[in-house]
Computed example of a mutant assay.
Amino acid sequence: MKMILMLLMVVLSSQFATAAEINRIWLTHKSNDPSKIVVNWISDQSGDAVVRFGLSDEYGETVRINENTTLHHVEIPLTHRDATYHYSVSTGEQRSADFTFKAYPSEVLRVAVVADWQGKPDLSAIENDDVHLLLTAGDNIARLWDKCGEGEKECIQPYAELIDSYPELFRSTPFMPALGNHDREIRPRGSKPPVESVYDVDALAFRRFFELPDDEWKWHFDLSEFDLRFVALDFNHISDFGTTWQTCHAFDENSEQFHWYSKLMKQSSGFVVTLYNERNASVRNQAQKQWLDLFQRGTCCITGFGYFAERAEVDGFPYYNTSLSGKGNQYPDPNSKYLASEDSYILLTVKRGGSITVEIKSLKNKVLDHQEYKRR
């Protein structure tokens, strides 16, 4: 009898594991516009990927991908504005609860930009802002090697732990990160360049985990109803370029990145917000200051290079620095107009047919700096 009970417990335990609830879910975009969204999740067991979605918990629409993996990326169409979408995901017998996210608005858009996420602070202020989109200016994790082993390029565990830290935020708000050096650190940096590369320039783990537009290490995303374009560039530790400390892609005037951004800016006529993870003053001087000329065709640049909050202006063009860990060493821009040791983020508010408001906000939900910009 004891043996039968033990066998029954094993069977029941196996059935329970098979039907484990899926909780690690995050939303991204891999298209260049908001007509589609990607639902991403990790399941305990390998299997197919199914997303059920609609404007109520009865769903009505389904997208299925026949695969056999635990990391899932499923793109679904978005046809509504000013509404709430319900969705659930499943892999085999594993399912999630019913979750929701906001459809994009038709009149007023709110976007938050964060950087330096290593400390994983309380983000209640951002949640209270009820943003439609969450972006970053780099350094979304602390490093890869201490969780994954030195030299491991495709291990996603640090990114999964980031999702686990803010489950409600990531399953309800589309998330589009830009790259920083910490996001691809596969070996300890040390005091001098080692024999082997410290960073994975191709950012394989980052690109494997997130579904983003274009090459993913650089991307752009357009919200045409608001005449708004976001561009993420790969700028970080540019002084280390050409050494085993090199972390980003080439950025000279003959580089793929330069030509790509130049083409985008020539096509842009509305608001353009450029994101990267390097000191603003250093980036402006690259390629005989041609980057400065390209930036000034847009609206503003936002970086997460230093642990402080800042707005600088060059010829009337604004450069921002933001950090969720804002009480570290400061590297002020020579053209700084606002500078503070504050844990901060950027809140962008765009009115359809109107201006864009850029606010530096503390994690205590205090507005530290407020500016309004019209189309250039």
Rank of each mutant, 00 (worst) to 15 (best):
V51F: 06
P213S: 02
I156Y: 11
T247I: 01
N335K: 07
D130C: 00
P334E: 13
S124L: 14
L179S: 15
T299W: 06
V358F: 11
W260Y: 09
F53A: 06
T70L: 03
W260L: 03
V51P: 07
L8Q: 03
F258R: 02
A83L: 07
E211Y: 14
Q330R: 14
G54Y: 05
I42E: 14
E21M: 04
H72A: 06
R143M: 07
F53K: 02
R187T: 08
N254W: 05
R81Q: 07
E58D: 09
K366S: 13
V113E: 07
L275D: 04
R171C: 00
F226P: 03
P334L: 15
V39K: 11
V50C: 06
A340T: 01
S13V: 00
S106F: 15
K218A: 04
D293N: 11
S224G: 11
V39E: 13
I360H: 12
A205E: 10
K266P: 14
N329T: 04
D129Y: 12
L264E: 11
R110N: 15
K374L: 07
V89I: 01
T79H: 11
T28V: 05
E161N: 12
E278A: 06
Q267E: 15
D315F: 12
Y87N: 02
D183G: 05
S165Q: 13
V283R: 03
V111Y: 02
L55S: 03
S31W: 00
Q267W: 15
G306K: 10
I76E: 09
P318E: 05
R81V: 03
K266G: 15
Q45L: 15
S355P: 00
F258K: 05
T84F: 08
P193H: 09
L27C: 13
F258D: 11
K364F: 12
R189Y: 03
R52T: 08
T84W: 09
G180T: 04
A19G: 05
S341K: 15
P193Q: 07
L363I: 04
F99A: 01
Y320T: 01
R187V: 06
L55Y: 00
D82M: 05
A178N: 14
F210S: 06
A312V: 10
E310A: 03
E127L: 15
Y104P: 01
G138M: 08
A205P: 07
E21W: 02
I238F: 08
S124M: 12
Q288S: 13
V273W: 09
A312F: 08
D122S: 12
R95W: 02
I356K: 03
F251E: 04
P177R: 15
H249C: 07
T69R: 11
T244M: 06
P188G: 12
N68C: 03
D222A: 08
K147T: 13
